[in-house]
Amino acid sequence: MRRLLNPVTLLSALVLVVTLIAVIWPGLLAPYDPFDSVGDARLEAPSAAHLFGTDALARDVFSRVVYGARLSLLAAVLATTAGAVLGGLVGLISGTAGGRVDFAIMRVIDVMLAIPGILLALIVVASLGFGAVSIAIGVGLGATGSFARVMRAQVMRIRNEEYIEAARTMGLRRPTILFRHVMPNASQPIVAMASTELALAILAVSALSFLGFGAQPPTPEWGSLVSDGRQFIATAPWLSIMPGSVILVVVLAVNGLARNLGGNR
């Protein structure tokens, strides 16, 4: 109970609730249309009317950030889910099979962990083409290795537990044991890890979108908003700094909650 009243946790939860609203009903938060100019107020500094100022086409930057949440966060969630499912499956196979299969799989995983995640993502984007989906696949592939490791370690631990032995002596089939008994018991560290990986995925996705591999304009995306503002950095630094700070706050909020989940271990 004390954990729930922790101010960091409360603040993180609040930030994430607001972010979730931005993803599902952006119209509730955004005061303006993200694609239309609001008169001829170009490159205006932040004010009460325009919290994050306006961009070179006189669009409200705050509204663009709110509408950008959906694509940026969905890509990050997709990446983390793909990494967790793929990595979890690989780890499950590796841990259950043991022996040579396990050895071979783990060497491949070692290499995937050695290649920097962003380079792995760049290879995928260069082969698949641009867009939020290929970014998500690239980032997810980068996270697969760590998920596989954790899952394998869990399977190794659970394999020798008494209740598994009991299930085996009861004559349960192997897939049943795997999915009914091993998976549920192995999933908690995976969930804890997924929340940490989500923060990293938000960073990686926004970095790739900043580099120009994400959605094409005028679709707003957090990373590309920062990149759009970069050319006005001398006169209108808030154009980049505001969306960038939103990414930082959301990442910190995810981390703040993730630490709580991890603390359960």
């Binding site: 970095a207 900043f210 920062v226 960038g244 990442v251």
Partner: peptide, 14 residues
């Protein structure tokens, strides 16, 4: 680790 590199860069430049 939590701060995006492009944010640091943009703030430092400005």
């Amino acid at each position: 680790i939590a701060i995006p590199a492009f944010l640091t860069g943009v703030v430092l430049i400005s």
